[in-house]
Design a protein around this nucleic acid. Structure first.
Lengths: 265, 265
DNA sequence: GAAACCACGTGGCTAAGCCACAAGATGTCC
DNA sequence: GGACATCTTGTGGCTTAGCCACGTGGTTTC
């Protein structure tokens, strides 16, 4: 590896190695708690020094994907997959994890030119006016109870041109299937009173609030922009702040129907 | 350093070094963009090998505090201080950063035995029934406009025994002053309709929602537990999810009074 | 004045090794 | 047979002593 082209990349070797190991970790059939490659194995397999191997592995440890155990090896962290974007943004995945049966009702689905969409949408998606978008409105249900109402503009081209039928279940599985790898998302979370139009949809009493998440999903370029309302009485976001090293993104949790009053107000 | 007591600690040397460098970074008068110690300087100063120094510095890089520039040195990252817990949880700090004048009204402040408090409070604070708590209700204002209402139980002993007068401005500055270093916090964020009792306080119309953040602040032990309501029309949480390495905790942003409708609903 | 050059310090990376630690296999004693 | 000590093996932690590629700034040259 000492003279090949990879050395000419701008990124340091340990950084490239970090990426390759991450791929391997995700695609190699590793599960939480599994033993990962040792420093020596990595060094041998990629023809690098043990120290470089260690530095790359350390990156995965710092990112929370692995765990070092002295005298034993490197292990896939239990919560590593929860770090996955899928777990952070996929309703289907989250609902299933909390033991409830997810379902979806597609309320609207149409194609439009970006020029017809709101200017803020065009800007956030970074598209020319001629670009084809798909607008879709979906109601997500857990055990038949409506809990999320989402409105989404997606760039057809970049998302594998989904049709109405493709959006009837998990959007993230669809992206997977067509080979689109989501690499990031930005969320803005606000609290709003449920609009009258949604009150019936979400089966809420007047005066109940929802968490409105405005989010942009990205791969190389923006893939979609969404406004999603989470029932205030069924969802909460968790956020752990840590001084020092390993932060975790906030994540939404679906609550059980009877978890209402847990505050001493 | 080869034989002294620090080696007997359970934590690897590079980890301990990481902590010491973090202290140095915070307390050493470093500002964003400043040049930090080089690997060789760290190695020399602490009597360790360059590689161990690099590994500790790498930790700070991974955590977003530093930035490596090959051939130049290690530099303090511009947003490093935003990572600080202070920036994440201190209202005074956030308000000042967004260019608005913070103020505080202490609505209530009394001491009580933990035994008198709600059982959930006792559990979350991990205290015996005899432990003395301080309960405080505060209204936080930005440019005179009420934006946050907070109710907080704090463990008097662990928080430097603050009195009513000490809670009239930033609680985090107070903790600093009495030498308490906050090391972590957990937040649960929900959306609730503003209770009638708070409607007047926050000067909100009926049917407006608030972000209710239930949080526990910790040092070695839990310091306080709080329920804080952020005006839904003035606050939003940001959350950036990244595939791979450097996640950032969600953070609350105070909006300008005229930033109301930014959604294409 | 501008361009080419050079020296120096930096992080990136290697080599070859020893250490402390964890765990399983082996052996020993009762 | 069972309990306990010991050995062996493999792991991550850490060191020494380098060379390399890169950025920067000063110096020289034209």
């Amino acid at each position: 590896m000492s003279t090949d082209a990879s050395r000419l990349n701008r990124m340091p070797v340990y950084h490239q190695l970090n990426d390759r190991l991450l791929e391997l970790l995700r695609g190699g059939g590793y599960g939480p708690g599994d033993r990962f490659l040792t420093e020596r194995e990595v060094a041998a397999r990629f023809g690098l020094s043990r120290i470089t191997a260690n530095k790359a592995l350390s990156g995965l440890v710092a990112a929370g994907h692995l765990e070092f155990r002295k005298g034993v090896g490197s292990f896939v962290r239990g919560e590593a997959l929860e770090n996955d974007l899928r777990a952070l943004v996929s309703f289907t995945h989250k609902a299933a994890r909390s033991g409830r049966k997810p379902s979806t009702r597609v309320l609207a689905c149409r194609r439009l030119a970006a020029g017809e969409a709101d200017v803020s949408v065009r800007r956030e998606l970074d598209v020319r006016d001629a670009e084809v978008l798909v607008y879709v409105e979906r109601l997500r249900l857990a055990d038949g109870e409506p809990v999320i109402f989402e409105r989404r503009h997606l760039v057809a081209e970049r998302c594998g041109n989904p049709g109405r039928r493709d959006l009837g279940s998990s959007f993230y599985e669809w992206l997977d299937r067509v080979g689109v790898r989501v690499t990031g998302a930005e969320q803005r979370i606000r609290a709003v009173a449920v609009p009258p139009s949604e009150r019936r949809l979400l089966q809420l009493r007047e005066g109940v609030a929802v968490l409105r998440v405005h989010a942009v999903g990205r791969a190389a370029a923006p893939l979609w922009v969404e406004d999603t309302d989470y029932r205030g009485d069924r969802y909460e976001f968790h956020n752990v702040l840590t001084d020092g090293v390993p932060p975790r993104p906030a994540r939404a949790t679906l609550l059980q129907p009877d978890t209402d009053a847990h505050l001493h107000a």
